[in-house]
């Protein structure tokens, strides 16, 4: 009885585990090995052109100004873009929550739509809107009496442009989670607070926020993980420019790996990204545990 179930379980698991091991875990480990070599286009032509670099590869990486640039950009995107996304999502969720029952579902759908649009398609529109002279955003700025901004052409503004785009694209996802969490808060809590004479702000501070905490920490975690993997937005909108102001770690990996076929170096970038994510995830979940 037990045996048959054990056998059945492994048979059921076999396709998924095989696929995950062969096409995900295996390559991830292979990437670690590759990252210690100088595997490149010469190696693909003739395997005797391979050298073992060991940790020297990571020393080269740490001396590469472009790597630091990409790291800095990625962190900017994670911190600024991530927090902006969470704040906008929370604000939208609270507002919709306060709206009439009849329009809630409609508004949720509207705010959610950018999430399901294909990123390349949306980026194409935003690129047109960001145009320094004929883009709608600059037309609006000039109309308001402000100087036009070369959003994607000026290194000072390009990352902000990417952030604004990605907030627009992503906040709906987190908003839905917040909204569900808000709707699950028992009504009695507010009634009790109202009887105690709590103001709206106090109700928010002492009822809503604590009840939202699990959802909040989940949203923060997935936002951080997602933001570290920034790629398609800069690939389509700026190609990492101007002056590498929007070069992200994944784009750096793509450039080295798939554009120049510096596979070893690209794999090292990927593993640094991985290590960063592990550290950040562990830190975040530890913070969460402590708060509980």
């Amino acid at each position: 009885m037990h045996r048959t179930r054990t056998i059945a379980a492994w048979i059921f698991l076999a396709p998924a585990l095989t696929a995950i091991t062969a096409f995900f875990v295996g390559p991830v480990l292979a990437a670690l090995v590759l990252s210690f070599t100088d595997f490149d286009i010469y190696t693909i032509a003739d395997s005797s052109n391979l050298r073992w670099l060991g940790l020297e590869q990571y020393r080269i990486l740490l001396r590469d100004p472009l790597f630091w640039r990409a790291l800095q950009n990625t962190l900017t995107f994670v911190v600024a873009g991530g927090s902006l996304t969470v704040v906008v999502a929370l604000g939208a969720a609270l507002a919709i929550w306060g709206a009439a029952r009849k329009v809630q579902a409609f508004l949720r759908t509207v705010y959610f739509l950018p999430v399901v649009t294909t990123i390349v398609a949306a980026a194409v529109v935003w690129r047109a809107w960001y145009h320094p002279r004929v883009g709608l955003l600059n037309v609006a700025l000039r109309w308001a009496g402000l100087p036009a901004i070369d959003w994607l052409g000026n290194p000072r503004w390009a990352m902000l442009a990417i952030i604004v785009f990605s907030v627009w694209k992503n906040f709906g996802f987190h908003m839905v989670i917040f909204l569900a969490a808000l709707q699950s808060i028992p009504h009695q809590l507010y009634e009790a607070a109202a009887i105690d004479g709590a103001s709206r702000w106090q109700q928010f501070r002492h009822v809503t926020l604590p009840m939202l905490r699990p959802a909040l920490s989940f949203v923060v975690l997935i936002t951080v993980i997602g933001s570290f993997q920034l790629f398609a937005e800069p690939y389509v909108m700026t190609q990492g420019g101007p002056a590498n102001a929007t070069l992200s770690l994944v784009l750096l990996m793509y450039r080295n790996g798939f554009q120049w076929w510096n596979v070893g170096y690209g794999a090292a970038v990927a593993w640094v990204l991985f290590a960063l994510l592990v550290v950040v995830t562990l830190t975040l979940s530890r913070l969460r545990l402590r708060r509980r």
């Binding site: 995950i20 096409f23 295996g26 390559p27 991830v28 990437a31 798939f258 990204l273 991985f274």
Partner: peptide
Amino acid sequence: ALLVVPGQVGMLPLFLL
């Protein structure tokens, strides 16, 4: 544990595979 690994890490070897 695999949830933490970004999909891009294994892409280069996967391509070679």
